[in-house]
Design a protein around this nucleic acid. Structure first.
Lengths: 192, 192, 192, 192
DNA sequence: TCCTAAGCGAGACGGTACGTCCGGTCTTTGC
DNA sequence: GCAAAGACCGGACGTACCGTCTCGCTTAGGA
């Protein structure tokens, strides 16, 4: 009947120590210079305890991310009733967060990791702008007559995240003016 | 008098072999798994010949990119007089090009490279959408009364590139519908 | 009433499985490449069951040896009345046994084990040539006037074992001629 | 024409540093506890420089031995004209040398190494008693009428080395009395 | 015409990190 | 309360590349 397995169970202590050591090292020295041996040392853990549970450094990164150890919060638009202000506030929060050099370097590292790990890519997207929350906010705005029907929440989400990432690529800052301008562009359109 | 230098001159053959080997390897195995020793071997060149002229792998990448060895062409919107069609055509061309798995993987590698080399980031941006060309196209559209004045070419450029990159992150495709919808969103705005 | 101890007693099945697995592995892959984990797996036993009862791999080896699981028999000279023939027969038996590649490799493993475990060294000596038996045989020969008094049984024993070991070191065979020659060499000096 | 190879030649400095570090570590901590990483560190050399030129730890050992870095000298009988005294002196020199705990542990390590490397076995034999030198000494003794003709130098050599090795196995000392007794045992038979 | 200063392919060097293997300890569950 | 299972920390293994260095060769001015 049972099938229950014998032996010691996986240590949650070790798991969390690893995820936290990973986040700490990535923030401190960047993704490239974060080594598995370094994580093990920082976590006070044997290297094999990492390789037993994760196939690669980027998988550890991913889990650290998913567990919310790495990025402290997801970015979600508020709801003040004014859709334009709310979207600007959301974009501004992301822009402000990644303006900090440490956080910018962290996101660069995550994107590097995402580029050779599909799951991390999906997860980074999700943590930057949680699609469900965006959809909810937009449908409320639509119901309030602030948006025309049928606007794709997904594309709008990607537009904002995309600009943040593009500025990261180019190492330039997304200013308050840029935030307002992009929000206006998207909401009012470029046509006269 | 002269000051002209003696000895063998830098070998253009070796230089091109290195740039091409780099492009080939990045396309074949990705940026991370491309090694300087691999490039040297692929190019039939000594390792020192690379380190003599470039400080790092990413610098070689950059030059390969700048020389057009890596990405075959820049993406520039046409000018048919219809700004909406032209922008859609430009975005569609990028989307179509990177839909090919090889090209998609190449762009992923370029972005990875960009993440640790600022100049590559700038260059990738430029090769995807050359800002000057976009500005020119937009100002013609503005003159033709198709756009309201003051629309930021830079933000529009980044919006399009950003969405391409974001889809690349998530490994999902930018369809023809997406292209039309994004173009419309940007040009007409989300408000009713 | 009882005072006897409670709980399951040590499993003789496990103990023998371990000793036999040890012998099998040492014969198959040699002492160095025999691992405690390998023994546990081969014996179908937990690793701790080994460490609970033995302090080290070489201790398991030793017990396997002592229990006769490893070397099937001790080598003892016969007593036909002719000391020279009897010693030659004893030496020939050892030489013949270790000529078989499997047995040779086993003895090499035993010697390796002996080199880091003093007790194994003593035990191997004893199992090869049991000193007590040799002494008994020699004193009978002495009584029969075949040997001058005072010949050291221990040195004679070591001489024979030593030559076997030396040939093992050099991977060369101790032939029938060698056996006769060595016996003669040693005995003519031992004769009155 | 040439076929001579280009590029930097192997560094003799690194090679000797490695051989000496190996000898030092084996003497200090024993063969088992000598690690390739330890050798590299002791020698101030990269690990790959070891693996580039030797396939295994025991191969390095062998070369250290062959180069005379490990055992400072071969043991060879003197020639005072008195064969019995000379052989006793030779055996006594070996016994005395390996009585020193460091040297004893070194020889144990060498024998361990020899047990899984045939070439080391041959070489250890050769360095302990150089067969050629023994043969020369014995044939001089034979010419001087101190030995009956046809005594096998090889067996005599092996007898002495064998006893040294056997005592090493049993961790017991070969005393001056043992030396005299063994020499006498062997020689009285060898006299005409 | 010779001399000399590059650049070249080759590849050894001291290092760092990889991912695997095993040692010896400890903990959980089942008999 | 022993046995199996197996997770844990530690640390060596052998491999892959890094960026630097030297070697012997070839070629192109300048003397």
């Amino acid at each position: 009947m049972s099938g229950g397995r014998r032996g010691v169970q996986r240590s949650e202590t070790a798991r969390m120590a690893i995820l936290q050591a990973t986040a700490a090292l990535v923030a401190r020295v960047g993704y490239d210079r974060t080594t598995v041996e370094g994580i093990a040392a920082e976590a006070g853990v044997g290297k094999q305890t990492i390789y037993r549970w994760w196939p690669s450094k980027s998988a550890v990164m991913l889990e650290s991310l998913v567990e919310g150890v790495m990025l402290p919060h997801t970015f979600v638009p508020p709801d003040t009733g004014d859709i334009e202000a709310d979207l600007a506030s959301w974009l501004g929060a992301m822009a402000g967060f990644f303006q900090d050099p440490g956080n910018g370097s962290l996101l660069r590292s995550l994107i590097t990791a995402a580029m050779d790990n599909e799951e991390i890519g999906a997860r980074v997207n999700e943590q930057l702008g949680s699609l469900g929350k965006i959809e909810a906010r937009l449908s409320r705005a639509e119901a309030a007559g602030q948006l025309r029907p049928g606007v794709s929440a997904r594309l709008l989400n990607e537009t904002f995240i995309g600009v943040v990432v593009t500025r990261l690529l180019a190492r330039s800052t997304l200013t308050g003016d840029d935030v307002r301008e992009l929000t206006a562009l998207v909401l009012h359109g470029a046509r006269p």
